[in-house]
């Protein structure tokens, strides 16, 4: 069984069963990563393109490696070096890429909804690699894979998402995915970085880090974009750290075996204390490896439809 859809634009539209399938499929994919020869022929002859309108290192590398491990050819278009700089429209760029025979496009864009827009333009599959502040489905899937690997399931799990919820596509995708899988999600951050009406997504909203962290099983720490301070959304980085930084003292409020996740890149000493980032409870390094496995699973399920499992198990 594969994913019976053309695109993966967000976790909002995925069912719990589909999420389960992706997570399950990522398990054997992760095994491939530990092999001597990390290449399977499953997607041989397929072409995956990354189209990145926003700087990114890890997401793009992760997708490209995932595609290559699966045997696909990859190409990448970064806006800084493309004709987009010369004023080419999004539609023209998309059609140009598609006419080169690309099967799947990975899009990263600073404007929310751009993945939907691309999916309407091209016949190729589109995987959202992060659109504006809306969704970043593969990040949430790798976060969920990491949690499940350590804890076995999501039911009843208390997951805290800590930081700038307002501007975070990682937060939104995690909320969709985790609530669908039965976790209890708490969001916490300064009120000026909390989107109005987010409680309607079925999460508990906190403004005090201590309250949210009480008894938590998982803490997902979001990156603080330092330019938000310049817009006056919080007074100083110093005060932010004092109120919301995940310090060893705050971590003690959570369960003793609580996991600490961070999508990276980290601002050590701002949203997360170095001791916490490097502690045994931190899964930050493993998340990166899991990201490749999740993306291999997704490419496989979308492009191969799961019809063949040649070379995987």
């Amino acid at each position: 069984m594969g994913l019976n859809r053309k695109d993966v634009l967000g976790l909002q539209e995925l069912t719990a069963e589909e999420i389960q399938l992706i997570l399950d499929t990522a398990v054997p994919m992760k095994d491939i990563l530990s092999r001597e020869i990390k290449k399977v022929p499953t997607l041989r002859g397929k072409v995956v393109a990354t189209l990145f309108y926003e700087p990114s290192t890890r997401t793009r590398m992760s997708f490209e490696l995932a595609a290559k491990y699966m045997g696909a050819d990859t190409m990448s278009l970064a806006v800084a070096t493309s004709s987009v700089q010369k004023g080419e429209s999004f539609r023209d760029t998309a059609q140009t890429i598609e006419s080169m025979g690309v099967d799947t496009v990975i899009l990263r864009h600073s404007v929310s909804g751009s993945a939907q827009y691309l999916a309407k333009i091209v016949k190729a599959s589109v995987i959202n690699g992060g659109d504006g502040t809306r969704e970043h489905p593969t990040q949430a899937l790798l976060d969920m894979f990491t949690i499940r690997e350590k804890r076995g399931s999501f039911a009843g799990m208390k997951v805290v998402i800590l930081g700038d919820i307002l501007h975070s596509r990682v937060a939104r995708s995690n909320i969709w995915g985790l609530t669908k899988m039965g976790a209890e999600v708490r969001v916490v951050g300064p009120p000026t970085l909390m989107p109005p009406e987010i409680d309607k997504l079925g999460v508990k909203v906190y403004y005090q880090a201590e309250d949210a962290l009480e008894g938590a099983d998982v803490i997902n720490v979001l990156r603080l974009q330092l330019e938000r301070q310049q817009k006056g959304l919080f007074p100083t980085v110093r005060e932010y750290h004092q109120l919301y930084g995940l310090t060893p003292a705050r971590l003690k409020l959570a369960r003793p075996d609580a996991l600490v996740l961070h999508p990276g890149p980290m601002n050590r000493g701002v949203e997360i204390a170095p001791e916490v980032a490097d502690s045994p409870q931190s899964t930050i390094v493993e998340q990166v490896a899991n990201g490749v496995a999740i993306r291999m699973a997704l490419l496989y399920l979308l492009m191969e439809g799961g019809s063949s499992s040649e070379g995987i198990s």
Partner: peptide, 13 residues
């Protein structure tokens, strides 16, 4: 418009 849909769609309200 700022509100539920802007929150959901990730667009500035």
């Amino acid at each position: 418009n700022e509100g539920y849909w802007a929150m959901l769609l990730g667009l500035k309200g």
